[in-house]
Amino acid sequence: MKTDGLIAAAESVESIKRKARRIRWDIVKMVGTAGSGHPGGSLSAADILASLFFHQLNHRPNDPGWRERDRFVLSKGHAAPVLYAALAESGYFSREELWDLRKLDSRCQGHPDMRRLPGVEMSTGSLGQGLSVAAGMALGLRLDKLPSRVYVLIGDGESQEGLIWEASMFAAQQQLDNLVAILDYNNLQIDGRVSDIVDIAPASMKWSAFGWHVIEIDGHEVPQIIEAFRQAGTTKGKPTMLIARTLKGKGVSFMENQVDFHGKAPSAEEMERALAEIEASGPF
């Protein structure tokens, strides 16, 4: 039985990795087609979102308003492409709509808009606000005695916003153990390296000191990600922060760790090269 379980787990990991490849391909295609957008921070979060949407989240894409669903908030809203790709792949809407990213009145707005696109739990874009919102959701779900959990992805540059730390103290005070934050820690922001501009290190000590259960992981290692989600689920009396070390632009060699690809679309030629690279990296 134990062996079967391991095989099943391995299959699950392989399936998540395939989804992550598909998400990366879609991100590049979306941003390349739009001619603008944020590929770097979307690619860095692809494995985290694949693990969430195709393993962890209890959700019903054909019933987005299901009361008992888990919630996911993309606090770093500029990474909208990774969210849209995960939502489309989950079945919230057709993949064809992804190619409308950033177009006039598209449901795939430049930053996520919950009033337009099903599956988007909160409109985001102005940094620092999603963690507070997620804490509010977690409070509301707890008031209603629902088993639902709330997941929120924040950026490392975003962690320079004061509101992140207001929310951090509040979530710990309220003992929100149904709240899981994930820090996409790629150490790059628009103006350069996070550690050169205003460093957020030592992130682990800061979040621990603020009363959170902290788990440090490699944000591209699917088994580590899903194990961390499991551990967060058994933590009582405090919220959990997954500090996920990531590589900005992960999966496209010429975008990896390149600050310029924070908010720049690939050219047509670069897009073809990037798509080919992702296709060569393994099956979808």
């Binding site: 909160m122 606000q129 507070s132 509010g136 509301g140 207001e166 929310a167």
Partner: peptide, 18 residues
């Protein structure tokens, strides 16, 4: 929420979604 008006506003938003 303590002396944290920005947090109060966003926590309220999260509560409203539920």
């Amino acid at each position: 929420v303590g002396v944290a008006e920005q947090n109060m506003t966003c926590v309220a938003a999260g509560l409203a979604t539920t």
